[in-house]
Nucleic acid binder design. Structure first.
Lengths: 249, 249
DNA sequence: GTAAATACTTGATTTTCATCAATCTATAGG
DNA sequence: CCTATAGATTGATGAAAATCAAGTATTTAC
């Protein structure tokens, strides 16, 4: 814990703040509006804090913490989980580099999810008050955040559709394709990637037991649609996988 | 069709525009930020168009229509449905008076859902361009719309949790409690209400077949937790219903 | 390096809900 | 009014995934 503090301080206030800026971040095509002027990017950059490298299992924030920032994932991966009244966890989403998490907290000024690092991850913290002020001055930025939130809504609704209609196989296939295409956005391989989350997290997110997740992975592997080696996934037949995801068996 | 056009015109441009304003709308506690100044409410009111009374089954807009407005439901009820690649419908939500629909369209400037009236419904159309401009001038309004979208996100995530974890009984119970509490916000009875949607819509939304929906209704009725008379629901034992919704059987 | 704990896999059985089928009710149209 | 059609209920059967159980593999901790 103390260790972490030290790392944080070094990593963030010394190294990161100087190295990285929104202007030169290779993720800015994903997390920034393309039409932002250079000087506006600088203004945004000036409110962004890069002070939070997280170790695996560490919390970025916890449900019921006071909301004050949204966070862009810069490297690594995180999961958002909410706790039901009964006390059990529900994974509500996975967030990869370039994606923004924390927008659930705005509604009641309190986060409804906890966000936990799935691996060592660094994030950009964007204080929402400052972002709000800046959005009043930069219409494009206001529009961008409306769009970011809208995208979160449409994605959540796609998950609703998946859970409402899809078989276990379709759910797994859809998740794999989702991660694949999100890797594509970052110019990483769409056919070969490491799953950042455990089978348990996958099952929790998709409403399946861990046993079912495991069985589906082996089934998809036996059908020669994917190759599974621990957390490494190779998509062998993208087309058939898409059909399965869409429920066309 | 022609008929409808006529009704629209009469109803809206003559009657509605004069009778109703955001200032005197009894739903404004739900759909407006409380802290808005009187003159700001007037400015908002001036961009709101009340020209769309819908008959049951009519579309407010269709998926892939160009996005240009969000809509506040003033009376009645609507459902949002998306069409999967396979071509089948998925109900992604129900919207009651005071609630705002259409925010999914912002992400790509195209609606991802179609919205259909479940009964005769009137709506307030809020052109988004105008709303954006106004939001730049009225910080509270900007904040309000961020919050509205955030609430949509948290609600969708609750649905994800429900579908991921809940039994058929828990799903139905949760839907009933949701409608009950939303009626409460409008000072309507929380124990006695008319379901605006069909069993088919309920099943579609909750990922259940219509037969299962029907069976659960009879089961809950036999257990004396609710009384069902067609679409009229009376909640008899709210406490036990809550337990069922939370999975504590 | 070994022990302990955690993550994952595989198999046997049970449960829940979907599917198939029949019937009933209500609403609309001629 | 009576029929046609859509919506809803109820029952019998089947399938998919959960549960229960045992075991293997991989980290983590000492």
């Amino acid at each position: 814990m103390n260790n972490m503090q030290i790392i944080k301080t070094q990593d963030a206030h010394c190294a990161h703040d100087k190295r990285v800026s929104c202007g030169n971040c290779r993720l800015n095509a994903i997390c920034l509006p393309i039409s932002l002027h250079v000087e506006d990017i600088d203004r945004l950059n000036s409110i962004v804090q890069r002070s939070k490298p997280l170790q695996k299992g560490e919390y970025l924030y916890r449900a019921s913490d006071e909301f004050d920032s949204v966070f862009a994932i810069r490297s690594g991966a995180v999961k958002a989980v909410s706790i039901s009244d009964k006390g059990d966890e529900q994974v509500t989403g996975f967030y990869l580099p370039g994606e923004v998490v924390g927008m659930d907290g705005l509604a009641d000024n309190v986060y409804t999810n906890s966000v936990i690092a799935l691996e060592t991850s660094s994030v950009c913290e964007i204080p929402f008050n400052r972002l709000e002020e800046l959005s009043l001055q930069i219409p494009t930025l206001q529009r961008h955040f409306f769009q970011l939130m809208s995208r979160e809504i449409t994605q959540d609704q796609q998950v609703i559709t998946l859970l409402s209609k899809g078989s276990a196989e379709a759910r797994i296939a859809t998740l794999l394709l989702s991660i694949s295409s999100r890797n594509g956005r970052r110019n990483l391989s769409t056919n070969d990637f490491i799953l950042p989350m455990s089978r348990t997290d996958i099952g929790n997110f998709l409403g399946l037991t861990i046993e079912t997740v495991s069985r589906i992975f082996t089934r998809l592997q036996k059908s020669n649609l994917i190759a599974v080696d621990k957390k490494e996934i190779t998509i062998i037949d993208m087309e058939v996988l898409r059909n399965i995801a869409n429920g066309n068996d």
